[in-house]
Design a protein around this nucleic acid. Structure first.
Lengths: 146, 146
DNA sequence: TGCTAATATTTCGTACAACAAATATAATCA
DNA sequence: TGATTATATTTGTTGTACGAAATATTAGCA
């Protein structure tokens, strides 16, 4: 029954992550952001770090490449990003934000920040450092870097 | 820039939850479990608590009803569960495991437990209690139970 | 130079997440 | 009783996750 302890931790972790994402998505909808949370992550990352290869962007955002391809397809449909073929390696594709994309990031960033803040109410600085330390430990436990 | 702190916490939380789930799924595949992690959660919960309504099961597993319906469809295809119409309320459906389902839960439980354990290596009892306390606080911060 | 291996991306198939709408049945109340 | 409301489930749609395979291109080596 020692076993069940870890099952329960996994459950709590997944449940909380789901709730945080769902809360953000609902807030996006309430604010009439015509964009999903995952799409936001992409353009925000692109804003902070322009002209990344899709491959690099996928790594930075912890998304696999097929998933990123589809999200980028949607962002292009919405006119927020563009694909630019690498000049000397035609396998590679640079992504960059359109003007509309940049404006959207600038307009939404403070609102997103305030949305994100809500989850961490009533937590102390020690809680924050414990939180990051523990979650990073878990992450590393499962990242078998041989 | 205070803002970005909370964005980062959200990112770490989601990244870790994703990794834990992915690690479990990969281990399932390696062990030739012909079942997904989410499907496992359902039959495991059903095993511990037989004859639940779909609605009750959905709540217990933190899945919404449409999602659960579809997972149950797959479990039925695999012969692991059955739907039984409530005798006096034909809107409601009881779920219960088939013999094959029960056997599968019994066979896989210890293996799943050992898979789940890996994520929490090198953590102390204090870490566990901080982990649950903080994540539950976050969860409750976002559950507006008005 | 020509062939093979490696790389970046896309396509495909299956599964899960969330919400809205549809369906079926039950409960309530005029 | 009949109409309305509430409940349990399913269906439809869009988006995300991920592995495998396909495609296109480049790099490395005989």
């Amino acid at each position: 029954m020692q076993d069940e302890k870890f099952n329960r931790y996994s459950f709590i972790l997944e449940r909380t992550a789901k709730k945080v994402k769902q809360f953000a998505q609902n807030s996006f909808t309430d604010n009439d952001f015509d964009i999903t949370v995952d799409q936001w992550t992409i353009i925000k990352t692109l804003y902070e770090n322009d002209d990344l290869l899709q491959k690099e962007l996928a790594e930075k955002c912890c998304k696999d490449q097929p998933t990123l391809t589809r999200i980028v397809d949607l962002l292009i449909k919405k006119g927020l990003t563009e694909r630019v073929v690498h000049p000397s390696d035609r396998r590679s594709i640079y992504l960059h934000l359109t003007d509309e994309g940049r404006k959207k990031v600038e307009a939404y960033s403070p609102i997103v920040a305030s949305i994100r803040m809500k989850a961490w109410e009533n937590l102390t600085d020690e809680d924050f450092s414990a939180f990051t330390r523990i979650l990073e430990k878990i992450y590393n436990n499962l990242s078998n870097k041989i």
